[in-house]
Simulated scan of single mutants.
Amino acid sequence: MKRWIETIVFWGAFALIWEYGVAALGIRRYLLPPLSAVLQAGWAEREMVAGDAWVTLCEVLIGFAVAVLGGVVLGMLIHFSAFTRRTLYPFITALQSMPKIALAPLMIVWFGYGFASKIAATFLFAFFPVVIATLGGLSGVAANLDEHFRALGASRWDTFWRLHVPAAMPSFIDGIKISMPLAVIGAIVGEFIGAEEGLGHLITLATANAKSDLMFAAILVITVMATFLYWIVEMASRLVWWRGKAV
């Protein structure tokens, strides 16, 4: 209960500072509109905001799911295959070192302005932390535990399922917790580069029409969405018994 009270007090104070600090400091509304103006603009365009938010949410969820699935598969391949570790892992590392925003226009060229390019951009931003987390978790299993399982006559499948998966799960959870906000960023970047709908497109449209209050409303919705999705991932991670409430 105390934690919830502290959270409510903090965000309430933040809202008050935003609302009254703008006028107190003499900040022009086109630079930073007060919170009330942002909320009014969002409510006035609520149908458009809700529609664009739904598009972005779908892009994030699908891209995140593909990134998690692809990241787990790649992490397992790199861990269990020496050939993949020597060939594919350096390629993935090199791909990660490239600036994602520079690669985002290629998604438009390859996949067009539709839904697929946003999924590709989301995947591009989100999959690498899952690969590294999966690989790190699997590689962190002590060698003596592997030997112990073999001494007990466990099959490779039993060793993987009963030893490697539980050992890798904490690292994997940390990876997807990092990946989720990156998935939101990837979807928004993809919409910035080229889109006809979505919150990133709404921000671009509001900026072009000098509607800073609507732009901040879209940013606020993105922030709430990213925070809520991260909270869902964290709550789901609490179901993992070997991490318990320490997550």
Rank of each mutant, 00 (worst) to 15 (best):
T223N: 13
W161E: 14
A226D: 02
M215A: 10
E197S: 15
I203L: 13
A208D: 11
G140F: 00
L145Y: 12
G186K: 09
A143M: 13
V189T: 07
L229T: 01
D146M: 04
A208W: 08
A167F: 11
H164I: 00
M225W: 03
V224T: 03
T159A: 07
H148C: 13
F172T: 02
G140N: 04
E197R: 14
H148G: 13
V189P: 06
A206L: 05
I193W: 01
L145A: 03
F216K: 14
D146T: 08
L152F: 15
P170Q: 01
R150Y: 11
N209T: 13
L145M: 05
M225D: 00
L145Q: 09
T159H: 11
G200L: 03
F172G: 13
A187S: 10
P166R: 01
L145I: 02
G200M: 04
I188Y: 02
M215C: 09
A226H: 05
V224H: 05
G190E: 01
L199T: 06
T159Q: 10
G153I: 03
E191Q: 04
H148K: 13
H148R: 08
L152Q: 08
I176L: 03
N144Q: 15
A154N: 09
A154Q: 07
A187D: 06
K211S: 11
G198Q: 01
T227C: 09
A168R: 00
L138V: 11
P170L: 00
G200K: 02
I178K: 05
I185M: 13
M169I: 11
L205R: 12
M169Q: 08
A195W: 00
A154W: 10
G140S: 10
A226P: 04
T227A: 13
D174H: 09
G200S: 04
L205W: 08
H201N: 14
I185H: 03
L138M: 10
V165T: 12
S212I: 08
T223P: 05
T207K: 10
A206C: 08
I173Q: 15
I178M: 13
I173H: 09
A210W: 15
D213G: 04
S139I: 01
